[in-house]
Amino acid sequence: MGTYVIRRLLQMIPVILGATFLIFTMVFALPGDPLAGKCGERPCPPAYAAAFREKYNLNDPLPIQYGKYVGNLAQGDFGETTNGIKVIDQLKARYPITAQLALMALAFEAIIGITVGVFTGIRRGGFLDNLVLISTLVVISIPVFVVGGLSQYFLGVRLGLFPVTVTSANPTFYQLMLPAMVLGSISLAYISRLTRTSLVENLRSDYVRTATAKGLRRRRAVGLHALRNSLIPVVTFIGFDFGFLLGGAIVTEAIFNIPGVGGYLFRSIRARDGASVVGTVTVLVIVFLFVNLLVDLLYGLLDPRISHD
């Protein structure tokens, strides 16, 4: 177990370096000049421009710029935006909001998705099963920005069940509820289908038959024996999904006016603010890798046949 974790952590290093390099290269290639418009409606004085370029290493070629960036990053320094604001402060203010949104979406899709999957899985071919199969397909095929706009209109404006937009820098649980449901809606459909398929397959397996044969009630045989093993693909999906939720939050945040990392990243790309973009994505990649390591460790808990030794 210990060596497995260490090996996985070591494997993460090249992935993080590669991903940051990829992002860094793309940001380096962004057209436009970060100095444009910096000094009002006239070009910046040469002395200021030179000092600015020196400070942000803009004169160095790409590999050296990247090397300097990684060197600072290894010491926990995310650099400054071109406005002189520390990127780490921005990330500290915004990541918790996006993380809360993503976690709420994850909880929503996992709880409802698995419940629906179990109910349709144990009554395969019934009315509920067919209804869920069709409605999940419909949900999957509607893009998230359409779901967002429609639910904002019907649930927020028409029925007044939820706040229409987020109005403060520290959104409450209630304000984030509708955005989280929108964000998690597509994955909810995937999770319920995945749980259903996987449960149906496991219900036919020998160990479930044994459990029933030795006199366990159906509830226990399904809940304890079949469901636990069926959750492995579901947990894998949820692990991958966490990263995509953080990334996909960009659309939901735009619709509901949430001050998370999505909007920040979007503006930073437009403003050609390299440090912010690379910093934001780096944190995202690291979170994604750690969540997936956690998922792999969870396998051992769910299925005793899987061991990491």
Partner: peptide, 14 residues
């Protein structure tokens, strides 16, 4: 490890 939507936004802008 780079989310599709985010990566695509950066790629397209660059």
């Amino acid at each position: 490890s780079i989310p599709l939507l985010l990566g695509a936004i950066i790629f397209l802008s660059s």
